[in-house]
Design a protein around this nucleic acid. Structure first.
Length: 610
RNA sequence: CGGGAUGUGGCGCAGCUUGGUAGCGCACUUCGUUCGGGACGAAGGGGCCGCAGGUUCGAAUCCUGUCAUCCCGACCA
């Protein structure tokens, strides 16, 4: 390809819409253009990158025995109703774009394809003899994100590889899951990305085990907690750890654990309470009131209890709620703090926020119009394990000192609600501490189990002749996100430095002075030779000054640059590695064999040599 | 959804306080000089100043409304 024919438009200034380096560079170098928030056109250069990423993905999926397919993006609502996800994905914080056709039938634009694929599998896979099967596709997904950002990182329309496997038993599923884990590691290595696998929450998709693949980068939206011995790494949403030891309460239990009233005016926060009373935050129990709304219309007030130094992990909370209510009340639509205004709308008396204790009576909810008239009380282990503590007295300006669970007449059943923090001790080895880093989630693999096959009644006949739902796995890679993550991980002050396997072109040939016929002819000759040698080569044939072509070349990030300049008359040229290092001076005849050898090696990405 | 900011040619911005129907840099077109790290000179094209009302003799500028985009937040009372 010639630059003069490439529709290349580069920008000198950073567009105001971009915040992170990769987003700015993709816009400036003419790879993408925004049409609407979270919706981007992939310009010809970007499309070449995306096709290369897709090809690596395709080769590794095929190698693992998966079958490529292409499923509809427009999906009928009743499929999603059958799996129970329609309401959760369209109402509330739902992320599915949906629409009606002229007959009034409802459709969603596919954010994912479990429903479609499970239906097909149920139709086509009748016997255990046909299993296992792993189907994948590479296509555009649609998600109405609350807040699209960072270019292709969190778009509303994006390219994804999604795969779904079907098995006769759990062991076969686990085997496929392990194979996908291996395939994913090869994919990211082949794309030249440093990626780490971390334990993850299964989120809205559901299922049991799941693992995310994170490209490490400062701009990442996810917080990774990992031990330095490399034996534990998890998304913070999922991470577990040992909490710091609590400082024993010097006063001990008072009034048989009912606690003594402590005057604490203007000490409505844990911070001010501890400062004012000389307490440690591990000696205090804090209470959060929230409201959970479910698909069935159930509005359940929550009374959450954590130790004062701990933070609520909303993902763990949502999982706990789904576990208790999903069966009878459908999907969890939202969890939000109970506001004074909301209390008023329900006709309830104001509550002393900042002075609440776990002994708060259900009686305060009795007059509620729409809410359940009792709290669901959830207590984190850190709070439940305290033998005695300080808590709110449920009246303004007062706390209870020396309270205990039995003394308050409570018998909490504890669960894990706390967010693990950097610096926490690890469960597998308490001498290890969790360290934080940031990552961009580029892949996620799940063992779904039989959730969808049961819901969609997708069954096969077993060897014994009975009907059973499939065991399923699903495996995603954000293709367009991966491409941008590569830029985030591989750039410098001058522009992009693509890993060669996914670069739009492998070599850029630049005649320094286009007006010099000797340089022009040699450049053309090398361009033709490299093409014949099977190299993806771009020739900068524009009548620009050398400086302009070099600047644009750096911005575009093509791994190798061949400069045909003053030495052309003597048959010499320069070979420059975009990632840095001194230019090599070569004879024209040496170039093609030399480059073909280098590029051949680099096409393996970061894969270890066999 | 809450908070903040911004909407002026393709991109980045000034002008708005103190109303008098638009300007700078980059990009684009033509000519000349230049030619190994975003050249210089000359000439040129392109904007109903987000949109809708209002105030005024007159609005990019003041007022009201509305839309859009970006950033922060949407767990800790």
């Amino acid at each position: 390809m010639r630059v003069s024919r490439l529709m290349l438009v580069t920008l000198r200034d950073d567009p105001a819409e971009a915040e992170i380096a990769s987003h700015k560079l993709l816009l400036r170098a003419g790879y993408i253009r925004r049409l609407s928030p979270g919706i981007y056109a992939y310009l010809p250069l970007m499309w070449r990158v995306l096709r290369k990423v897709a090809q690596v993905v395709r080769e590794e999926m095929d190698r693992a025995g998966a079958l490529e397919t292409l499923l509809p993006q427009l999906q009928p609502a009743d499929l999603w109703q059958r799996s129970g996800r329609w309401a959760g994905y369209t109402a509330g914080e739902g992320i599915m774009f949906h629409l009606e056709d002229r007959q009034g039938r409802e459709f969603g634009l596919g954010p994912t394809h479990e429903e479609v694929i499970t239906t097909l599998a149920g139709d086509l896979l009748r016997s255990y003899r046909q299993l296992p099967v792993n189907l994948y596709q590479i296509q555009t997904k649609f998600r109405d994100e609350i807040r699209p950002r960072f270019g292709l990182m969190r778009g509303r329309e994006f390219i994804m590889k999604d795969a779904y496997s079907f098995h006769a038993d759990e062991q076969s599923l686990q085997q496929a899951y392990a194979e996908m884990d291996g395939a994913y590691r090869r994919i990211f290595a082949r794309c030249g990305l440093r990626a780490v696998a971390v334990e993850a929450d299964s989120g809205a998709i559901g299922g049991s085990a799941s693992q995310e693949f994170m490209v490490t980068a400062e701009a990442g939206e996810d917080l990774i907690l990992a031990s330095s011995d490399g034996r534990y790494a998890a998304n913070q949403e999922r991470a577990i750890s040992l909490p710091p030891e609590a400082v024993p309460l010097a006063a001990g239990p008072l009034a048989s654990g009912a606690g003594e009233l402590l005057e604490t005016p203007d000490q409505a926060s844990i911070d001010s309470l501890c400062r004012g009373q000389g307490l440690d935050s591990t000696q205090v129990v804090k209470v959060l009131l929230q409201l959970a709304r479910f698909e069935s219309g159930l509005q359940q007030p929550l009374l959450l209890v954590l130790r004062g130094d701990q933070q609520l992990n909303t993902v763990k909370l949502a999982n706990g709620l789904n576990g208790r209510f999903a069966e009878r009340h459908g999907a969890l639509l939202a969890v939000e703090p109970l506001s004074p205004e909301a209390l008023e709308r329900q006709g309830l008396a104001p509550l002393p926020f900042g002075y609440l204790g776990p002994q708060l009576s259900d009686a305060v909810l009795a007059p509620a119009r729409d809410w359940q008239p009792h709290f669901l009380r959830l207590v984190d282990h850190t709070a439940a394990d305290l033998p005695c503590f300080v808590c709110g007295a449920n009246q303004p300006g007062a706390h209870l000192l020396g309270a205990s669970w039995s003394g308050l007449g409570l018998t909490p059943s504890a669960l894990d609600l706390r967010a693990a923090q950097p610096g926490d001790r690890c469960l597998h080895d308490p001498s290890q501490r969790l360290e934080a880093s940031r990552g961009i989630e580029v892949g996620h693999i799940f063992q779904l189990g039989r959730k969808y096959s049961t819901a969609m009644e997708a069954c096969f006949t077993t060897e014994a002749g009975s009907q059973e739902p499939f065991w399923m796995g699903c495996y995603g890679i954000g293709v367009s996100r991966l491409a941008q993550a590569a830029v985030e991980q591989h750039h410098d002050a001058h522009g992009i430095c693509w890993p060669l396997p996914i670069a739009p072109f492998e070599v850029l040939v630049v005649p320094a002075n286009g007006a010099d016929p000797v340089q022009g002819e040699l450049a053309e000759q090398l361009y033709a030779e490299l093409q014949h040698a099977g190299v993806d080569v771009l020739l900068d044939d524009r009548s620009e000054r050398a400086g302009v072509k070099f600047k644009d070349g750096d911005l575009l990030g093509i791994p190798w640059r061949v400069v045909v300049g003053r030495g052309a008359a003597a048959g010499r040229l320069e070979l420059v590695d975009r990632r840095g290092g001194d230019p090599q001076d070569l004879a024209a005849a040496e170039l093609v064999p030399h480059l073909v050898e280098c590029i051949g090696r680099q096409r393996q990405g970061l894969l270890p040599p066999c």
